[in-house]
Amino acid sequence: MSVPTLTLCRTCRDADPALPGQVAAALERAGIAAHLTQVDCMSGCQRPQTLAVRQSGKTAYLFGEISAGDLPDVLTFLRLYARSADGNFADARPLGKLRFKAIARIPG
Rank of each mutant, 00 (worst) to 15 (best):
M1S: 07
M1R: 05
M1I: 05
S2L: 03
S2Y: 09
T5E: 09
T5G: 01
L6M: 09
L6V: 00
L6N: 01
T7V: 14
L8T: 07
C9P: 05
C9H: 02
C9A: 06
R10E: 10
C12G: 02
C12H: 03
R13E: 10
D16C: 05
D16K: 04
P17V: 01
A18L: 14
A18E: 15
L19F: 02
L19M: 01
L19T: 00
P20D: 10
G21L: 03
Q22P: 10
Q22K: 14
V23R: 07
V23D: 12
A24H: 04
A24V: 05
A26M: 02
A26K: 00
A26S: 12
A26C: 06
A26Q: 07
E28W: 08
R29W: 06
G31C: 02
G31P: 03
A33T: 09
A33N: 13
A33W: 03
H35C: 04
D40H: 03
D40I: 04
C41W: 10
M42N: 04
C45W: 00
Q49V: 05
Q49F: 00
T50G: 10
L51W: 02
A52M: 05
A52S: 02
V53T: 11
R54E: 14
R54T: 09
R54C: 07
R54F: 06
Q55A: 08
S56M: 10
G57R: 06
G57Q: 01
G57E: 04
K58L: 09
K58D: 08
K58Q: 14
K58M: 07
T59E: 11
T59G: 05
A60Y: 13
Y61W: 15
Y61N: 13
L62E: 08
F63H: 09
F63S: 04
F63W: 08
E65K: 13
E65C: 08
E65L: 13
E65H: 12
I66V: 14
I66F: 09
G69P: 06
G69L: 06
G69T: 11
P72N: 01
V74H: 11
V74Y: 06
V74I: 03
V74D: 12
L75G: 04
T76W: 02
T76M: 11
T76F: 07
T76V: 15
F77V: 04
L78E: 12
L78C: 05
L80S: 06
L80R: 13
Y81F: 14
Y81H: 12
A82G: 13
R83W: 00
R83H: 04
R83E: 10
R83T: 07
S84G: 06
S84K: 04
S84Q: 00
D86C: 00
D86Y: 08
G87S: 03
N88P: 00
N88Y: 04
N88S: 10
N88W: 02
F89G: 02
F89V: 15
A90I: 07
A90P: 11
A90C: 03
D91S: 10
A92G: 00
A92S: 11
R93D: 11
R93C: 03
R93Y: 09
P94L: 14
G96H: 11
G96P: 13
K97L: 11
F100K: 14
F100E: 15
F100R: 14
A102T: 15
A102Q: 14
I103K: 02
I103Y: 03
A104P: 08
A104K: 12
R105W: 13
R105C: 15
P107E: 12
P107K: 13
G108E: 08
